[in-house]
Each structure stands twice: as structure tokens, then as C-alpha cells.
Amino acid sequence: MTAPGETGAAHLEVEGLSLSFGGLKALRGVSFSVEPGSITALIGPNGAGKTSMFNCISGFYKPQQGSVRFDGRDVTRMHPPERAALGFARTFQNIALFRGMTVLDNIKLGRHAHMKTGLLQALAYWGPAQREEMELRAEIERRIIDFLEIDHIRNMPVASLSYGLQKRVELARALAMRPRILLLDEPVAGMNREETEDMARFILDVKEEWGTTILMVEHDMGMVMDISDHVVVLNFGEVIARGLPHEVQADPHVTEAYLGSGDPAALMARLKGEAGPADGGSAAANRKTREDVA
């Protein structure tokens, strides 16, 4: 058992993971490793299986084969809440904030697995329960709300926020989870240039100041090339390339995967990514998520 409160970057290894839905093979023997303290990007065309991979890592899907290891410990059979207690934290592709709560409560919720208040203490809101809540509040204010620059919205209901701010609150909630590995599913999808740059800066800061391992799915090649240390490319549920950002970028298999996907927007994004890394060419992602939001 990991000692409670253990911190620091974790090492995540995925080995031979296979997942199918009826006849559809979403993942076929995927293996990769996320080095402690690194930012690893998981990329691939739409439907490649990236979100499914995340769901296997956080325990929402049960893979038919393969294993997930966390600092060398096999967690494949663990339930999602237990993994959260170990330090698996994540954000979601389709924003999954709790719409009936304020920003502050959403963030506080992230700490759930690390708190101790039981039912009777909660009913009485007495002694330790109250102290725990106050400590949490203070810590969130100090380390998260200031850091992510969301003090002006802390008491607003999340439903009233802009899309970009909602994504930021999701990151805040994940940070409140005491992450040892942070899984970010398309953190800048649907954001404008400025918001994307902010988010990239936050992610780099998390890596540096919090020393957290980060695994990120992203369609925005500019951002991927800019901030990741390592890239893994999925296509049709298989790893087709991996390596340093510029190596992957030059890999002909990758070009083919994006071209072969028949998605011109993805191609555009990739071409733009090649032209200038800073220019967040997230056309594909933008188009998709904007529709969802509308």
C-alpha cells in the first residue's frame, strides 16, 4: 500500500493492453511507458482509441488483456476510486464538471479520496470534520485557485462559465486530487489561441512546480510539439510510432495515419504544426468540440 499522502511523480507502464466492444477492437496490445516527471503526449486520428486508453488507465473500462502498472504495482484489477486514492487524476474530453455545484465545490470534490470525514462527523460538522474542510479550503485557495487564476469565479455555478474556463476548472479539480499522474484528455480542444497558450503554460508549471507525471491526449500538434517530452502515436488501437516529438513528426507512418484517416482537417492541423509549432493548429479538434458545445 502506498503511504497516504505520498507525493511525487509516478511511473506508469501500460503493457499489452487490449480492449474490445463486441466486435470492435478499440485497443490491440498497446504498450508504452510514461517516465516519472515527464509530459507524454498520446496522439492519433479520431477514433484511434486514445480516450479508451485513458478509460482503461483510470479503471472505467476493464481491458480484456494486458496490464497497467503504477510505480511497478499492478493496478489492472483496481476499481476507479481506489486508483484515484493512489494518485490517478484526470480531466475529460467532454467536460464532466458537476453542474449543480459551484466552482469551489467542484474543486473540493477532487480531494474526496484523500479526506477522512465520515457520515456522523459530517452530520454534526464538528471538530475534525470542520478542521479538515477549513484546511482543504485554505490549501485550494493558496495552491490552486491563485495558481490557475480563477479567483474571480470561485463562487459561480460552473454551468455559467465559458468553455475555456470550464476546462480550467477541470484542471483545478484534477490538481485537487493530489495527482501523481495527471491524465489530460484534450486539454485545449475548442480553445482560442490565447487560452491555448495559457493552458500550455499551466501544464508546464504543473510539471515543474508540482513534479507530476503528465499523460496528455491532444490534437493540437503545435502544443504537442512544444511542451511534450515524449510522444506515442495510436492508430486503430495500435501504437504506430513513439519517440521524441521531432522524431515522431518526421515518421512517415504518422503522416500516413493522418492522411489515411481521410480527415482533411487533421491533415491541416498536422501541416500547420510542422510549419510553426507555436501556431496551435487545432482545426479538427476545434470543429468537433465547438459543435458539441453549441
Binding site: 464532466a96 458537476f98 453542474r99 449543480g100 455545484m101 465545490d105 473540493k108 470534490l109 480531494r111 474526496h112 479526506m115 470525514t117 465520515g118 457520515l119 462527523q121 459530517a122 460538522y125 470534520a129 474542510e133
Partner: peptide, 14 residues
């Protein structure tokens, strides 16, 4: 005001 209540609301919302 505590984690128990927040957990309930979270279950309701998603």
C-alpha cells in the same frame, strides 16, 4: 458542507 454531501451531488450530476 462536507465531502459526503459533495459526493452525493456528484453522483446526481454524473
Amino acid at each position: 458542507r462536507t465531502r459526503v454531501g459533495r459526493a452525493f451531488i456528484a453522483i446526481r450530476d454524473r
